[in-house]
Amino acid sequence: MIAESGENSATNRVRMGRPGAAGAGRNRFGLTGASQAFDPRVVAIRPDLADIAVAGTHFAPHYAAPMMRSGVLPATALRATPSVDADMTSELLFGEGFALLDLTGGWAWGYCLSDHYVGYLAADALAGPIAPTHCVAAIEAMLHSAPDAASGGPAILPRGALVMGEPEGEWLATSHGYLPLAALADVGTSDKDPAGIAEQMVDTPYLWGGRTMTGIDCSGLVQLAWGAAGVPLPRDSDLQFAALGADKNVDPASLARGDLVFFPGHVGIMADERNIIHASRRWMAVKVEPLADVIARSAAKDHDPPVSGYKRLR
């Protein structure tokens, strides 16, 4: 099933990439030149279907306007293909938006609204869109069945999850249960110390495509930390490097807390002028270690230069 826009599609269109804009008021499309090259990680095109936003620049047999959905599980694997055995490329967190373009065989195809990352989700992980009022600011927050710390909880939500509700004393009442306000922040609130966020994730297991305390990868850690600081970043380290316009030549002695350091296929956050916090495949966990050690390992792999860039958050 191709996800077509409904009566309220004009208000539900995705803002990033402006899906729907190219085809507004039109039912025919044409290319004025050759179809452009694209990055399939962030441009929703399949051999049979594409996001309507790319009509006019990319050819596809069919185009679809996205239907807005949101995640209803603490974290749902985003996969490269519609199979439980496919590689997990990222995760959609509770309450985060998803632009649904196709629904077939129990799989939803589209992209995450937070970073435009394209992939497949289990269809039952999605529900109608919400207008979030709060986000989880603690590493994890228990969703309780009643506004009582002794009550049982149906789920534990990860940092970055989005929720909609009304404050009731020390609690936020949502349609799914109650969350302690102490573990939340108003949507739009930012933490100006991304390194501090990353430090809270130390010893988290390494998981390719992960974005939570259960498991996280290097770019997921950076995305989480800088996102909490009010700076949304793309999903992968090379996309982050390009989006930030990071420097290609770096003097490691000039680095300070919060700086991002990019290596080929890797990224980390400086804890101070000498140590880096990163989700490391070598240690299979988030670790703090001397930057000089990471540079030496990268250089041993014949990477030149081993430190490929950084960007400061000031």
Rank of each mutant, 00 (worst) to 15 (best):
A122S: 11
G268N: 06
T133A: 07
S70A: 05
L233M: 11
D87K: 10
K287Y: 15
Q240L: 10
N249H: 09
T57Q: 14
R282P: 08
A146I: 05
L126C: 03
R41N: 10
G6T: 05
P129Q: 01
L157R: 00
S114I: 00
L255I: 03
C112V: 14
R13T: 02
A55E: 08
T204N: 04
T104Y: 14
N12L: 15
V136K: 02
A296D: 09
C218Y: 06
H58V: 09
A65I: 13
M270A: 05
A299T: 06
D148F: 13
D238H: 11
S280Y: 09
Y63W: 11
S175K: 12
V136Q: 06
V261L: 04
G209F: 06
L113E: 10
H144D: 11
S145A: 07
L121C: 02
G209I: 03
P232I: 00
S237G: 09
M270L: 08
P305L: 01
N275W: 11
A183I: 05
G105C: 03
L255N: 00
A279E: 11
L244F: 12
Q240M: 05
R41Q: 14
S9M: 09
V118I: 08
G245Y: 12
L291M: 03
L93Q: 14
M284L: 05
D193H: 13
G209V: 01
A225V: 01
G6Y: 03
P66G: 04
G220K: 01
D304Q: 04
T214S: 12
E166S: 09
G196Q: 04
R314M: 14
Y206N: 02
M213T: 07
K248F: 14
D124P: 10
N8Y: 06
A127D: 10
L100N: 10
A285L: 02
L31C: 09
R18A: 09
H303E: 15
D51W: 07
G268I: 00
D191H: 12
I2F: 08
V54P: 06
L291T: 00
A300D: 15
A80Q: 14
G215K: 00
L157S: 03
L207C: 11
S114G: 06
A271R: 06
M1G: 08
I2K: 03
F262A: 00
A150K: 10
L255Q: 03
H144G: 05
A243V: 02
R18M: 10
P180R: 15
